[in-house]
Amino acid sequence: MIVTVIAVIFLLSIVVGRFLLDEGRIATNLTIRNAPPSFDHLFGTDWLGRDMFTRTIMGLSLSMGVGLIGAIGSASIALILGMAAATMGKMVDRMISWLIDLFLSVPHLVTLILIAFTLGGGFKGIVIGIALTHWPSLARVIRAEVMQIRSAEFVQVSQKMGKSRWFIAVQHIFPHLIPQVLVGFLLLFPHAILHEAAVTFLGLGLSPHEPAIGIILSESMKYLSSGMWWLAFFPGLCLLIVVRTFDTIGENLRMLIDPTRAHD
């Protein structure tokens, strides 16, 4: 519980911090370029004298934003397809399972590259790519959950009493699904962030003018050989911490809604 609270505070501070930071710190300032970490510049500065700490925080909040939109898209697809597979008969179920296989049969990263290529890179490409690649496992969970609720006694009784499909869906199925979808979303969100950073790193995601984490890291590659390790170390570490934090929150929430797994 405590871990979750700290994690939430940490993440909020990144989001809020982005607006408190001084934009001037990422202006080009050649007098302080290539400075290693110091109290003034916690993460050092880059070859243009921009403060790496400020760039990192901005990059993180941007990556989180992109990840968030992608993850919401993905969770929505999962919800729709999962529900459809469970409720719309055998044919639809088979088609959706085939669709899931389809998306699982090309490596995520390759799919992302393909979609980014199709949409000409940039924000749109990466968001759509993430939304389209992360839904299969959550869709399976939702499908199973809906199947289980539908066969539950109270739903059967409701059905016999002649309640409409819509009534059953709203009264019985949605309330049970909400925690599952929420947790599923939280668990898929960090992966979305990671994939966004990866694709951007490869040069197929956000444009080089955006202060994204992937851009920062791919730019740093040029300067590694001159010993400027801080350009890569801190931004990546922060990305790792953010992803790990979301993962922890998701796992903890899952334990809350599923106590049988708790003592593990």
């Binding site: 170390f233 790792l240 993962d247």
Partner: peptide, 29 residues
């Protein structure tokens, strides 16, 4: 393991480069 699952592969690669290629000079960059 949980930490590794959250680690960006490319960043880990960069760290490897920094440590083994740049600092220790064992491998080409």
């Amino acid at each position: 393991c949980y930490t590794l699952a959250s680690t960006p592969t490319f960043w880990l690669g960069l760290l490897m480069l920094i440590v083994f290629a740049v600092w220790l000079g064992w491998f080409p960059i």
